[in-house]
């Protein structure tokens, strides 16, 4: 994408987002409140400032030669890769509490390392194991904050009990 296009889309996105927030400030409930006690006054002022800012960015795209100021550099982004990693991270965050830290991390960490293009199992397996187990003990024992889900103590008991 050219800097001009980025600025056009960026300015438009800012305006769209501000409009969405502006709509949230339109509550009849506070219409009669004095300015200082009106919860919506300050956010509304901010959304208006943002819309003005968005217009300036669009103007910059339209009226300058490259469609950008000297600071604006077009980055070269591999979008499918960005979406893939964001989705993986999202899935991990989603699973973090319901599946528990140990299980979610034990599955996610090797997977993401492989997806990012590193394939040496002899490194991935020990690194993952040490990270998962080490972090669990660090948080649960040293920091006294138990990560969600099954803990190492239960896993160990399960292994011992299961034979």
């Amino acid at each position: 994408m050219t800097p001009r296009l980025i600025n056009l889309i960026g300015g438009g996105a800012i305006i769209g987002l501000s409009a969405l927030f502006y709509a949230q400030t339109l509550s009849e409930r506070f219409a009669s409140a004095p300015l200082a006690r009106n919860p919506m006054a300050f956010p509304r002022l901010l959304t208006i400032l943002l819309i003005v800012g968005g217009l300036v960015v669009i103007a910059q795209a339209v009226f300058t030669r490259r469609g950008a100021l000297p600071g604006d550099v077009a980055a070269d982004v591999n979008w499918p890769r960005a979406v893939l990693i964001a989705a993986l991270a999202g899935a991990y965050f989603w699973a973090f509490e319901p599946w528990g830290f140990l299980l979610a991390t034990a599955l996610f960490l090797p997977l993401v390392i492989v997806v990012l293009g590193y394939r040496r199992a002899l490194v991935i397996v020990p690194v993952s194991a040490v990270t998962v187990v080490g972090l669990w003990y660090l948080f649960a024992r040293v920091f006294q904050i138990r990560p969600p889900g099954t803990g190492m103590d239960e896993v160990l008991r399960m292994i011992a009990g299961g034979g």
């Binding site: 991270a89 960490l109 993401v112 590193y118």
Partner: peptide
């Protein structure tokens, strides 16, 4: 290696 580092950072 960067993939390992980034994975651990995410965790």
């Amino acid at each position: 290696p960067e993939p390992v580092l980034l994975g651990v950072i995410l965790v």
